[in-house]
Amino acid sequence: MTTETLIPKDKFDYETVDRLKSCSYDQIESIIPELLEWLQDMNWPISQPIAEYLLPFFEKIAPEILKILQGKDEVWKYWMLVTFGKITKDKLVLEEINRIAKNPTQEEADNEVSEIANEIIN
Rank of each mutant, 00 (worst) to 15 (best):
E52V: 00
T2H: 13
S22R: 15
I32M: 05
A62I: 01
L39D: 11
N122W: 12
I46K: 02
I61A: 10
E107S: 14
E115A: 11
N122P: 01
E74V: 07
I97Q: 08
L54F: 07
Q48E: 15
D73T: 12
P56S: 12
K67D: 09
P63S: 10
I87L: 06
K67Y: 04
V17S: 08
E95P: 01
L55M: 08
Q40R: 13
N103C: 09
V93R: 00
M1E: 12
V17H: 12
S30N: 08
I65V: 06
L20P: 01
D18H: 11
S47L: 05
E52Q: 15
K21A: 14
E37Q: 14
E95M: 13
D73V: 10
W44L: 11
V17P: 06
K72N: 15
S47T: 07
P49M: 14
I68T: 04
L81P: 01
C23H: 01
V75I: 11
W44I: 09
Q106W: 15
E59Y: 07
M1N: 10
K102S: 12
D90M: 02
N111L: 07
L6Q: 10
Y25P: 01
I61K: 02
E119H: 01
L81F: 04
S30W: 04
R19P: 05
I120C: 05
K77H: 03
M42K: 12
E15G: 08
Q70W: 08
P104V: 05
E96V: 00
A51I: 00
I46P: 08
K9C: 10
E119D: 02
L36N: 05
Q70K: 12
I7T: 11
Y14W: 15
L20C: 12
D90H: 05
I100V: 01
S22V: 13
Y78G: 00
Q27M: 14
E108Y: 04
I31A: 04
P56Q: 09
E115M: 15
I32L: 04
P56Y: 13
P8F: 01
I68C: 03
I68E: 07
K72S: 15
W76K: 09
T83S: 06
T3C: 08
